[in-house]
Nucleic acid binder design. Sequence first.
DNA 1: TTGTTAATGTGTCAAATGACACAGTTTTTG
DNA 2: CAAAAACTGTGTCATTTGACACATTAACAA
Lengths: 191, 191
Amino acid sequence: MQMLREYFKGFGEISSKDMDFLIDRCTEKTLEKGEKLIRPHEHIDSIYFIASGFLHYFSHNEFGERITLKVISPNNCWTIMDSFFHQVTTSDECLALTHVRYCELKRSDYEAVKSHNKDLANFIQTITEYILSSKVVEANKKSKMSVEERYLDLLQHHPDMIQQVPVHIIASYIGTSRETLHRIRRKLTAA
Amino acid sequence: MQMLREYFKGFGEISSKDMDFLIDRCTEKTLEKGEKLIRPHEHIDSIYFIASGFLHYFSHNEFGERITLKVISPNNCWTIMDSFFHQVTTSDECLALTHVRYCELKRSDYEAVKSHNKDLANFIQTITEYILSSKVVEANKKSKMSVEERYLDLLQHHPDMIQQVPVHIIASYIGTSRETLHRIRRKLTAA
DNA sequence: TTGTTAATGTGTCAAATGACACAGTTTTTG
DNA sequence: CAAAAACTGTGTCATTTGACACATTAACAA
């Protein structure tokens, strides 16, 4: 929970009373490796903050193969935005690739925080703007980089992900096949 | 301006007084084909609503070649989020591919709207959530589709873009070369 | 512990792609 | 109007990629 506090502090100043109100609405949970955070065709009713571990967020193509949409890392807020904001079901899934510690904020509590007072409403608005901006920056960065550059970027910024997440999932995350990623790795170790 | 009103209405109910306050803070402008909306190394200080025409939003790679980040279509709000929210300069550019009509909302007016009253603050929060959700949906859709599927998707949803925007820009938008896009088009007309 | 399943490493090969070169066409501009 | 610039269409070719096949190793469960 201390980690979540620090995460929130990064977005600006709020009174400790407001911070407590916010933190009190979050509950700590864990997942075992292989457990699902989001089951198929579920209603998403929470925002999640990942404290440790990695999650695999994926969808399916016409023939049931998994399409990686994201590998979710610690110290991030995440949910299936579309499903959460518009209260529709999703066919996507999300499962723990390792043991995961996370905090959950239910929709009703999210609404409660927004309407508690003006400062908290502004605070949530700031966080939303920040996340929006990050998503766009991330997408732009991705479209500028080659597959190899994306791998090097992961190595630099998320070395622990490379250690703990299977190669074929990393590969699909950076948009290639496991064989091509293997070629890249071989080339890099040779150099 | 009527178009912007309709666009806002799509996000929910607000009083006509609030709507007027919001609309009054927007100013109508135009760009000629080839004119720049965003110059390199500029501070972004506005949000834009595109009423008609197409814009090319691009960055540069190490050797100065243009990397398409987006082709901006009518009936959309757009800005360089990162630069707008965090008041940093951007090295990206944005120029008109056709004659463009748009509305501009300055940062100071955006802040004024947010702090005018609770309803408007909530309204802006709702729009921000909506745009965030759309960005993620769009990115996920993109990662699920092949280049050919992305082209077919454009044909279906933005036939006018295909007409009015040069092939090499469409190609880089959907993530391929102009030659490969040409092969796809040839194959489709043959069938 | 052992059998089973998942993950990784590697080679071959056909298919897809990007780079290049150039011709024809359209648009812009002086 | 004429020249220049931008855009489009097309062929060739070397490179990259994904798909497949299979061996080896690691992780897991009975």
